[in-house]
Amino acid sequence: MASKGAGQQSGTIRWGILGCGRIAHTFAQDMAWVEGSEILAAAARQGDSAQAFAQQYGIPVSYQGYDALCQDPEIDAIYVATPHSHHLHHAEQALAAGKAVLCEKPLTVNLSQSQTLIQAVKSHQGYLMEGMWTYFLPAIQQAKQWVEQGRIGRLLQIKADFGYPMIYDPQGRAYNPQLGGGAVLDMGIYPLALAWLFCPEMPETIHQLQHHAATGVEDELLCLLRFPQYQVDAVLGTSFRAKLPNVAYLIGDKGQIAIEDFWRAPRCALYHQDELVEQFEDGRQGSGFEFQIAAVNRDLCEGRLENRTVPHQTSLALAQLMDRLLNRPAAS
């Protein structure tokens, strides 16, 4: 990684936002709840979009196009918020300019691209983290602690789904195969990531059912995964066709944990049979992005090149899992 800028030396991380779409708004809003960081610049393909975004959030600089943002010497870290079909190029561009990178999930559209990007990180001696913000949520961490403490006995099953109806637009990001469309990359990564968090190994078997939109991308998927070392079965689903319950259950032989809206997880609950034993609620002030932003800030201030909660190996594993679900040839 390039030598630390003044912001990193002083403990303040100076951020730039690359792409000013919907998810970038959540990032900018939640930055207000993170100490030791500030957003100094935003960039979009269209200059007026970047300017409007910057004005909305009191960001001092806006750029048309992304190269100027990457070359800005005042910026320490860049949040890549463009469509995932562009993540590889934009993250590489920022890394080559010596910036730390937080890249919105999924890291890229397939395992081969993720391998390429992580190799680029090593070549530039840079910092890269996939924005799997769910892993940093206090309720998810609390659920993991309960499992590790044996509060539900031996983990037997994981059930999780995530889906919202998406208006069909063959040219839009969700349904266009050229833009990395499909429910698995967009929403299905959340239940997959949850399963991996509790069972970090490749499943020995995957059984699945898919439904496809007219463009050929999957707009609904149900799958059953078996994790042999952990002796855990996972039932996962995702959908563009319907609103799913969006609840995760961690089921053990002595109890279970329910996590409503698990992808953003404001709370979780521990049950023994039908009895509610304990509840946890995080009382957050933002939307939940603030926890991952703070984690990246700590990494940079302490000189780490890789995050411990979402290491590169986890990003590669999730990419491999999605490739398997999408029946893609194995990457070399």
Rank of each mutant, 00 (worst) to 15 (best):
H124L: 10
Q285A: 08
V184N: 02
Y164Q: 13
A50G: 15
T309H: 03
R241M: 13
K4V: 10
V217S: 00
E260P: 15
L316A: 11
R308H: 15
A143Y: 01
P228Y: 04
L88Y: 09
A242K: 15
I259N: 06
T134A: 11
L224I: 14
D30S: 13
L197Q: 13
W33L: 14
T215G: 08
C20E: 07
M1N: 04
C70H: 02
P228G: 03
L185S: 08
Q210M: 12
E275M: 09
L88I: 13
V80P: 03
L300T: 13
A160S: 12
G283M: 04
G7T: 05
N297K: 06
Q231H: 01
S315C: 06
A242N: 06
N297E: 10
S10D: 15
Y249S: 13
A96Q: 14
D169Q: 03
F291E: 07
S3M: 09
A54K: 07
G131E: 05
E201Q: 11
F53I: 03
K243E: 12
A331D: 03
H89G: 09
A81P: 06
Y79W: 10
P200I: 04
A213L: 00
P228L: 09
Q231F: 05
T309G: 04
I251D: 12
H212I: 05
Q273F: 09
V217A: 00
G36P: 12
A317T: 03
H272D: 12
R328Q: 13
L326R: 03
F289L: 11
Q51N: 14
P203W: 10
A317M: 01
P228A: 04
E104A: 11
I118Q: 07
E35K: 12
N307H: 09
A294N: 02
D72E: 14
G131H: 07
F198W: 00
